[in-house]
Design a protein around this nucleic acid. Structure first.
Lengths: 228, 228
DNA sequence: AAACCAAATATTGTCGACACATTTAGAGTT
DNA sequence: AACTCTAAATGTGTCGACAATATTTGGTTT
């Protein structure tokens, strides 16, 4: 019910050095450029990026808050080591949060947003027919879809938790474990059902379907990792 | 199913200056000592605490990550302003996360932990009979109870999200809005039902009851705030 | 007096340097 | 050769100073 200005652009657009550093490092870590589990040397990184240690430390602090690095006093920071257990934990949190997001989206998304999401989903459908088995587009599409629903919840806390924290960690796992979904068709169907529930403004059903969708995805990941 | 050492105390116990600063400031903000919405002046705070601005800035960074302050480049940091809408958002996130925590606790808590929780709950029952209407102990007790269940989920992500981030924000609202529950008896009953479900190892029921419990709590808060 | 502009002041962003802790390298003993 | 102890070297925690950006002050114009 809260109305927000279509152009709420009263934020200053100033990008600080620490901001850029943070973005750069986050990308490097997520994409495995800086190896998982490796130690982060402040002097070395500072020199590489031509920046002072102070700014770097602030950036590392943010990375720590997003659980991409772990820090121990006087010992320094290490990139988190990915583990099967932690991945399961993330999926459990995702199930809870995105389930709630879907519930809220069914209540709070505008008709226009729903229509746009429908359009997006149709595009995905066509892409799946064209590139049969190519998983890259689907993964991207999957993320887009979830992203929009989370935004549609209109709950800023939820949005921050998912889009700022969890999704980056998830992307990190995808990169490093090379997770490709073998079930693009089924995922597409599940997205379709979910969108129907949202269109029908049925919060209960939307949450249920989202949780099932994420559980399926998790089971898929479990199978894939046990194969290796 | 993951077993963890009973004494996993391989962390260094070194407390850095920034750590202490962070704890102090967090407490000051939560308890309203530093007024909600007020600007945080780095030079002034640094002088007050006899510490350099660098350390202070790291502490402020952590406060920002926990959403206790908001920072804008070149403009500085302000303590978050509490709003009714944001409180509702927090309760929605809580419902999702703690619901999942209860579900997992029903699966993962040890029999011993469950027994201890039972003992704790019995104490609460006696306190309610003794101090009829005094809400302070109940609030503390309510937090204890929820805290233990979250720990019982054994999901470190979940634990971090709730105990490190959300609960402090919640306590801030309690302090500043002077939220006292007028339903200590009912809350106690709900805790009882929930613990029964956990004892019975019924995850589905545990999640359901926890979500209802939090929804009731939220409705209570809504009524209370609309009265003023 | 209200509104605008410019200099002065204060605050934040960034940096380099020092103090202390940890790790590594090397000498000495068995 | 393996071990222990000490000293050098490296790395993190903390600080004070400078540069760039906001805010305030005070004067000028209408």
């Amino acid at each position: 019910m809260q109305n927000q200005h279509p152009t709420e652009n009263n934020d200053p657009v100033t990008i600080t050095l620490t901001d850029r550093l943070f973005d750069t490092l986050q990308r490097a870590i997520v994409e495995g450029e800086i190896q998982s589990g490796s130690k982060i040397s402040e002097p070395e990184l500072a020199r590489q990026h031509g920046v002072s240690r102070g700014s770097l430390r602030e950036a590392i602090g943010r990375l720590e808050a997003r659980k991409l690095v772990e820090r121990k006093p006087n010992l320094g920071a290490r990139v988190v080591t990915l583990s099967y257990e932690q991945l399961i934990e993330i999926y459990q949190v995702r199930e809870a949060l995105e389930g709630m997001a879907a519930r809220l989206a069914a209540q709070n998304m505008s008709d226009r947003e729903i229509a746009e999401l429908q359009t997006l989903l149709n595009q995905h459908g066509r892409q799946i027919e064209e590139v049969h088995g190519e998983a890259y587009f689907q993964k991207q599409g999957d993320l887009d879809f979830h992203y929009r629903i989370v935004q549609g919840s209109k709950n800023r806390h939820l949005i921050g938790l998912l889009c700022n924290d969890l999704y980056h960690l998830l992307r990190m796992y995808r990169f490093q474990f090379g997770m490709r979904s073998k079930r693009s068709g089924q995922a597409y169907d599940e997205h379709h059902y979910l969108l129907n529930a949202i269109s029908a403004r049925d919060p209960e059903m939307a949450e249920l379907l989202m949780r099932q969708h994420i559980r399926s995805s998790r089971r898929n990941v479990e199978r894939m990792l046990l194969e290796n």
